[in-house]
Design a protein around this nucleic acid. Structure first.
Lengths: 185, 185
DNA sequence: CTCGTTTGCCAACAACTGTTGGCAACCATA
DNA sequence: TATGGTTGCCAACAGTTGTTGGCAAACGAG
């Protein structure tokens, strides 16, 4: 596949779309605003991505990129996971775009579900004492990590915004660790 | 103040507005749809509530109604809080309307912040080992409770939806308890 | 150079949005 | 019964939205 001359435009649209979706959510991010950011005509967005939903699907294509964790001591996996989540969240606005949209668009919610099922699920499956609980444990981890992101990056609750990354890890790691490997109460 | 003849209409509008805001979020919930649900003309909504933002403010007026907890053993407060949150969430769509909107509307986010600061804050202030940490502890509780609500009621992650209320309490109570009274790691 | 394709912009459409003003029916009070 | 405010609906406005079709310039293969 040879590089097309319009690849730069396509990429610029994608970058602008991610920014707008992350900052405003799906409905408030308009094609016109995205096109203006990318310095092209709104009709180009339609030509290259079909429609707004497809553009979002392309812009919100996301991978958690969980590290292997194979050589991490089992009792430190919680901290490693929290640290990784935090890092991903701070350096990639795709997650923010996805969450802001998932709250009101079923298609985005479905993608969020699959991200956690396919990427956190396996980690839980490998480490949970009882494999039958793996999905539940992955779900519980999702509640804590997504809740933290919601409060810190979206709602911007002052006490949560004020935590340093290491303080956040110190507080959340035991929770995630317990959800992953702890006994059922 | 004598009861006006239009009070029933006002109330019907508010009920319909809460339902729509909870189900669709602020932008997708249209005045026309709300009016249709309430079986009145869209212009009535404007006459009685001024504009859409004011209508939302009226519909999303929310109180967590945290119980006194004065006679609850300190080590059971976590469970009591989780149980109460769950109950509130299942029986009042106002919280859902608020959360769905807070993700994209700053005014709603601000209300969410004040709900937690003014209603969860005092509980933490009374029970936290170090009063200086009260706000942080309240914030951490918010991350877990809002994250759980997000995953269960909005994103509908299957493993989280599948938990019975008592299972949810069993899993989350230790987390909330630690955030409230546990030592800093 | 020539010609078909690609890239881009402009203008417009149709649908939907929040919002407004006017008009008819109703009601309580005098 | 007359009057002034209340309740409700209809029609319309102005702005914004996603989306489309056509046209001009630039490009690349022959």
């Amino acid at each position: 596949m040879t590089a097309r001359r319009s690849d730069a435009t396509r990429a610029a649209i994608l970058v602008a779309a991610r920014e707008r979706f992350a900052a405003d959510g799906f409905e408030r991010a308009t094609i016109r605003a995205i096109a203006a950011d990318a310095r092209i005509d709104p009709s180009m967005v339609m030509r290259y991505y079909g429609n707004k939903e497809a553009l979002f699907a392309a812009a919100a294509d996301f991978d958690l990129r969980l590290p292997d964790l194979g050589d991490t001591p089992p009792d430190r996996i919680g901290a490693a996971l929290v640290r990784h989540f935090l890092h991903r969240w701070e350096h990639d606005e795709t997650l923010m775009a996805l969450l802001r949209t998932a709250v009101t668009k079923e298609a985005a919610a479905e993608r969020m579900r699959s991200v956690f099922a396919q990427q956190v699920g396996p980690v839980a499956a490998r480490l949970a004492p009882d494999p039958a609980q793996a999905a539940t444990r992955a779900g519980l981890i999702a509640t804590q990590m997504l809740g933290f992101a919601l409060c810190r990056y979206i709602l911007r609750l002052p006490p949560v915004v004020g935590l340093t990354p290491e303080e956040a890890v110190a507080w959340l790691a035991p929770t995630v660790q317990r959800y992953l490997t702890g006994e059922v109460s």
